[in-house]
Design a protein around this nucleic acid. Structure first.
Lengths: 372, 372
DNA sequence: TCAGAAACGTTCAGATTCGTTCATGGGAGG
DNA sequence: CCTCCCATGAACGAATCTGAACGTTTCTGA
């Protein structure tokens, strides 16, 4: 089933992954981690460095910085707009690395720099990071993903008054904002993503589906909206919605899952859509311990597709277009900086993708994606 | 399963399925799984790679990522992708010329051609034009603005089955479409445009505002939605909405306007938002004949800004970002044609602009847009 | 400054994979 | 029924990937 070996490209991705997660990697560790010789790792690093995706240092590699020696200058004459864009994201180890990576590669293609700042899901910290970026006077634009829960109007007004253009990433302010210019944003269409999941399950015969939302995520609201719409469209019950945190590191998660499964049984649900992979894997593992089979006794679709592939069975998941969101944000920002205020405000929705694996369909069924 | 042999296309789908499930596939395993020779698998992979559906690597294939070595960079001649894009618009004399013009200039910048076809606001004619463009085999993509009133699902399904990528312009299909790929679109955010108009009037003291919608325009629905939302937000009455055609060339338009003004007087309305310039000018002219002053006795904001500037007094109007819509559509299409199906679906809203002239504010007031 | 240790990269070899060339066979169309 | 065409498969030289060996460079601490 699993390969003992990976392809070169996969290794490259893995290297970049580790790099984004930790900011730096060392050859020795990577060699062990990936199960290849150090020489191979060095070759990988050299290849990635040739694309300016990382900076080679003695003993390993780091994320590229403006200090990178001998950055091959862009093609001769057309230096292009050399902007520096600040980016503040709420997390650097879940969900956001893929967005940052998409942003980084778009930035490389456009010849601009990105100043990345990790924050938390907390507005005060967001604000601190943003303020520091602005005060450093180095950034011409900002890509932000602030926590808009709470008194969002106040935050939005504050953001609107920043001296540089702002584009919100994976966030949607109210449709009208009390700012001199309407705010620009780009986000995944999570409501549609959820709809894809439910319709996939519906296509495979499930008529009674439940939804488990993780608490406190800005995504939940969109998922809930998509849920209501698609259930109404398909004429299936929309009642089984649970908001709870059932991660394995959460105390009492087993009791919560047991409770959830009771509700499924009571309402006759045969499938669950679960927000965020860890929660889905937690549920799957619990089912496994109980002797329930997946997808036989319960079909599961996870939402996020960060680690769903690694579950056993591999989990069908909705994958938000994270790299594309980052990329689009950068492209919008470059356009805004290049064209100035005359350019009309754009708001972009990007559609997630449904990755069909084994947790949602009987294994014997010939594999056939609805996306064919 | 049923057949010992499958067609090439089926095999391709199967390969993509495996790929989506596992993220990577190995030539050897696929050959065994599909019961064909490795050479055949390699040929399949090469074909799929040519469509950017996967990335070929030594020993197999992976899903395309941003690390995917760039396709043959077409620098030297830098001929650019010389695509030809078909564009079918419902009118060539109102509203649409600005969109087409935006599209044309973007096309020139991108080095692609546009085949323009005028149609009507009628689905049968749309379909005829589209069919002809397809059959001529000259276009690699289509920008369409079909009339989606009526049995829109049927039309959407038809559009989804066209052999070239489609982007809808100023049209929004249902959030989910029964097509192999979700439809892509770009449109003006008319609801927000209307909101700008109402808030502008509200800012200048109007607390009782009416809305006149032209009948049968696809825009009306968005305007009505924006109207309900903004009236609720501002806490002003939303009851005075009239749907009528009051163009000067419409028989009986004077009676309808008289009726409208009666309703305004009855409800105490001091301002009107009127969809489409000709209607607004018609009302303004009638008011003028009655001796009412604009904006003194009645403030007017027109929606479309096609000819609003020519009115007397010059009319404040919401200007949908028409050139930008056309431009964005072309840019999206070029991206789609360049990057293929792997590119996630984008849906873009562009924000209109409020052009403040004389019909909404006392003439003495220095004209100053809230947009500074 | 120097020496030891670690890391690096060149070279070579073994193994695997790729793709060209040519031959075969079955289905579509006449 | 025949022919043409395309998809497939076999074989083999070419290309690629990987790791070991070993001389060279860089780092670190005395």
């Amino acid at each position: 089933m699993s390969d003992d070996r990976m392809f070169g490209l996969q290794r490259h991705e893995r290297v970049m992954d580790e790099l984004r997660r930790h900011g730096a990697v060392r050859v020795r560790e990577l060699a062990e981690l990936l199960g290849v010789s150090e020489l191979t790792v060095r070759r990988d690093i050299a290849a990635l460095a040739a694309q300016n995706l990382l900076t080679k240092v003695h003993g390993g590699a780091t994320l590229p910085t403006e200090l990178t020696p001998a950055a091959p200058t862009r093609r001769r004459g057309s230096v292009g707009p050399r902007f520096t864009i600040g980016m503040v994201v709420p997390s650097l180890d879940y969900y956001w690395p893929a967005i940052v990576s998409g942003a980084r590669s778009a930035a490389a293609a456009q010849g601009v720099n990105i100043q990345l700042r990790g924050s938390t899901y907390d507005w005060a910290e967001d604000r601190r990071q943003i303020t520091r970026l602005i005060e450093a006077q180095q950034v011409q634009g900002l890509l932000l993903a602030p926590n808009l829960e709470g008194d969002s109007l106040e935050m939005i007004r504050w953001i609107g008054e920043l001296p540089v253009p702002v584009i919100l990433v994976e966030r949607q302010p109210p449709r009208w904002t009390p700012t001199p210019y309407q705010l620009e944003w780009v986000r995944s269409d999570h409501a549609l993503g959820l709809e894809l999941a439910v319709r996939h399950l519906h296509d495979h015969g499930h008529r009674n589906i439940g939804l488990l939302l993780s608490k406190g995520s800005p995504t939940s609201a969109h998922l809930a909206r998509g849920w209501d719409l698609v259930c109404a469209d398909l004429g299936i019950p929309a009642g089984l919605v649970v908001r709870d945190s059932v991660r394995m590191d959460e105390p009492g998660h087993r009791a919560l899952i047991a409770q959830l499964l009771d509700r499924c049984r009571a309402s006759g649900a045969t499938a669950l859509v679960i927000h965020s992979d860890p929660e889905a894997m937690s549920v799957a593992q619990y089912c496994n311990e109980l002797g329930m089979t997946i997808p036989g006794d319960l079909a599961i679709v996870a939402y996020d597709d960060e680690v769903a592939k690694l579950a056993e069975p591999a989990m069908t998941a909705v994958r938000p277009p994270k790299p594309m969101v980052g990329r689009t944000a950068v492209e919008l920002m470059v356009a805004r900086l290049t064209e100035g205020r005359r350019r009309p405000i754009q708001r972009v929705l990007v559609t997630p993708e449904l990755i069909i694996r084994d947790s949602s369909m009987p294994l014997s069924t010939p594999v056939r994606s609805t996306w064919a």
